[in-house]
């Protein structure tokens, strides 16, 4: 199996923007996000439409940063957490950009960057491609868990779906933050059935992807300034270290977007953040500026997804994980 794809022409991330809700703005990265709305409604009457609006706002801001009009974008890859990805199709409808909807649970950002990079490097007719991913806590609670006003207690391993989104504009320019390698994840099922412990469901996929990527590229963790997982949370991150240690791999430069989004003590997220918008907003607001500023030269981004639905959980099914890899370098 040829898993790691080295791009013949590296693809640049020309611009990126993020939009978040109340809890994310209150978190340690709060000031870095381009846009926030404390009401979590983003001017919409339902939380489902609010999620669409997050993507809309983020893409508009990214276009503004790049000084581009939406008519200059040839293709759009987008995904979210709602059934049939309706937040993306609804929120991004008005741009009129040719669109491909993606679903990879919380790993959708990885799928998006993977697809966009391959599309740009393969099809010379394309000059600019956008990637947008979003999630909304209230929409996710309603779809996957319980009514918003239901009085219950969350278990300590539960994660908090982020009200967040990010938009990325990709092109073929040769200077800046470049995507040099991509790798699709494998679907891995380690029999975890607890939807309140998704970090545990995703950690084996992240470990598999990291080990495979390092092996196939003949690199070591030290060759990267940062190895960043999507939303394993604190529980999943600890399990990832354990799994990697079994293969004698130790990550001293590991960060997890889900663990970074909220304060551990001051905010009660339990095991950390999750959702398609989590890694997108953290990449756009935190890691890309570090790459652009030269603080990081080379990093691996491994968005992680827990593949399940309310029906699959109710029917006693286990939760599979997936973790695509994107290598970002500054040249």
């Amino acid at each position: 199996m040829n898993r790691v794809l080295r791009l013949q022409v590296p693809i640049r991330i020309a611009a990126a923007a993020s939009a978040v809700g109340y809890e994310e703005f209150r978190g340690p990265l709060g000031e870095k996000f381009d846009f926030h709305d404390d009401s979590d409604r983003f001017g919409e009457s339902t939380f489902e439409r609010a999620e669409g609006e997050i993507g809309h706002i983020a893409l508009n801001l990214a276009l503004k940063k790049a000084g581009l009009s939406h008519t200059e974008i040839d293709l759009l890859f987008a995904g979210d957490l709602q059934n049939q990805c309706v937040a993306s199709s609804g929120g991004l409808l008005s741009f009129g950009i040719p669109y491909i909807g993606l679903y990879g649970a919380c790993s959708t950002l990885g799928e998006g960057l993977f697809s966009a990079a391959l599309a740009l490097s393969g099809a010379t007719a394309l000059s600019r491609v956008a990637v947008v991913t979003t999630s909304h806590n209230s929409a996710a609670e309603r779809q996957f868990r319980l009514p918003l006003e239901y009085g219950g207690q969350r278990t300590p391993t539960a994660q908090w779906t982020a009200t967040a989104g990010g938009a990325f504009l990709l092109d073929r320019e040769k200077q800046g933050v470049l995507i040099t390698h991509v790798m699709a994840g494998r679907i891995l099922d380690y029999g975890i059935r607890d939807p309140a412990n998704m970090g545990a469901a995703m950690a084996p996929a992240a470990a598999d992807s990291i080990l495979t990527y390092l092996e196939k590229t003949r690199t070591a963790p030290e060759d990267y300034d940062a190895i960043v997982t999507g939303d394993l949370g604190r529980e999943g991150s600890a399990l990832l270290s354990e799994l990697l240690l079994k293969h004698s791999v130790r990550l001293n430069n590991h960060s997890d977007c889900g663990s970074m989004l909220y304060y551990e003590k001051k905010q009660d997220s339990h095991a950390g953040g999750s959702g398609c918008g989590c890694s997108a907003a953290v990449l756009a607001a935190h890691f890309l500026p570090l790459l652009q500023g030269g603080a990081l030269r080379r990093m691996l981004l491994i968005p992680t997804g827990a593949l399940m639905s309310p029906s699959s959980i109710a029917q006693g099914g286990s939760i599979a994980g997936i973790a695509p890899v994107v290598c970002l370098e500054v040249l």
């Binding site: 278990t155 029999g191 975890i192």
Partner: peptide
């Protein structure tokens, strides 16, 4: 780590709810 081993490990390390405080 095989699946059975992993499931046991996950269950063993998962933080418990603060039972006494909750009660």
């Amino acid at each position: 780590m095989d699946q059975k081993h992993y499931e046991r490990r996950v269950a063993a390390r998962a933080a418990r709810s603060p039972v006494f405080k909750n009660c």
